[in-house]
């Protein structure tokens, strides 16, 4: 007698296409080509600006959150280092390389550190909404009404504190519920960055756009999780860029390299040099087009 019910070997969603209706299948290599305003590889720098309350909360604990018993001075302060020091190093590095980036900011960042958010905007960079603070996680254990209120609150607080209503959204740890895409659409957002299943923008069924922010290429994954050096991280970025440039040349279609950066990880004194060298290298490549996320989405939308 099996402990598994008969239904375990029955498959009600076994059909052509996905086992959900959130978006449709397509093969990136078979889609009409995208042409960028310059170059063939769009390089999208996306920086996460995160404030971790020393009192963790939310449906799940965000990556990078507190570790020790309360009060975890060690992690509270080491994370906030990114906002006080690391992010400013990034701003200088971007200015020196002459490139524009996106900054995915918690609402709490805009409220607590107005000088930082003002400098982001003054530098010509984009602000993407990144929930309320690092307790503002979303998953399907969250009641849809509570999720709707959380996202609305984040949007309202960011707009009030920064003067800008973002058109893009990044969920903490890229995690959503089944309701999130519709809630983001209701909030008037144009795009989200949570789905890592593609390397070019695509449209969800409800009209929202996904701008894929590859988690495998993030400094968090390569340096913090996989424990590689900053130089190894930079080598991987160069290998990725070279491959994408080759693919763009052979296929005639534009490609995209998302580089996800975290100020308390890559903004450390002994690592920032690897980022600066990488930016200098890539900015000198004729295939590279550095662009903010909203710009990439707009160029893509105009061609599709």
């Amino acid at each position: 007698m099996s402990v598994l019910p008969d239904s375990y070997t029955q498959y009600s969603k076994r059909r052509e296409g996905y086992d959900h209706d959130l978006y449709a299948w397509s093969n990136m290599h078979a889609r009409p080509s995208i042409t960028w305003p310059e170059g063939s590889v769009a390089v999208w720098l996306c920086v996460s600006l995160e404030w971790f309350p020393i009192t963790p909360g939310g449906p799940f604990t965000a990556p990078g959150h507190m570790v020790t018993p309360y009060p975890d001075y060690r992690h509270y302060t080491a994370r906030d280092y990114g906002n006080r020091v690391g992010a400013w190093r990034f701003l200088d590095a971007f200015e020196k390389a002459g490139v524009k980036a996106s900054f995915a900011a918690n609402a709490a960042i805009a409220e607590r550190y107005p000088e930082l958010v003002a400098a982001v905007s003054a530098g010509g960079h984009e602000i993407i909404a990144h929930s309320t603070d690092m307790n503002g996680t979303i998953d399907s254990t969250l009641d849809p009404a509570a999720e709707r209120a959380l996202i609305a609150e984040a949007m309202e607080r960011i707009e009030r504190a920064s003067g800008v209503r973002p058109t893009g959204w990044l969920s903490i740890a890229r995690q959503q519920s089944f309701a999130t895409l519709d809630i983001l659409k209701e909030q008037g957002l144009t795009y989200c960055c949570d789905w890592v299943n593609d390397e070019l923008p695509y449209r969800f069924t409800n009209g929202l756009v996904n701008l894929p922010l590859n988690h495998e290429l993030s400094d968090r994954q390569i340096i913090t999780v996989q424990q590689k050096s900053a130089d190894s991280w930079a080598q991987s970025m160069r290998d990725a860029f070279d491959w994408l440039a080759r693919e763009a040349k052979e296929s005639g279609g534009g490609r995209m390299l998302p580089i996800h950066l975290t100020p308390y990880i890559m903004g450390l004194p002994y690592r920032i040099g690897a980022l600066e060298c990488l930016l200098a290298d890539l900015a000198g490549r004729e295939e590279a087009w550095f662009a903010r996320g909203d710009r990439i989405v707009a160029v893509w939308e105009a061609q599709t």
């Binding site: 969920s171 995690q175 299943n197 390397e199």
Partner: peptide, 18 residues
Amino acid sequence: RPHPDVVGYGHRDHSNRL
């Protein structure tokens, strides 16, 4: 993670889209 595990599912979907 609770379903949908967006990164887990999306990562594997990367195979079938490109």
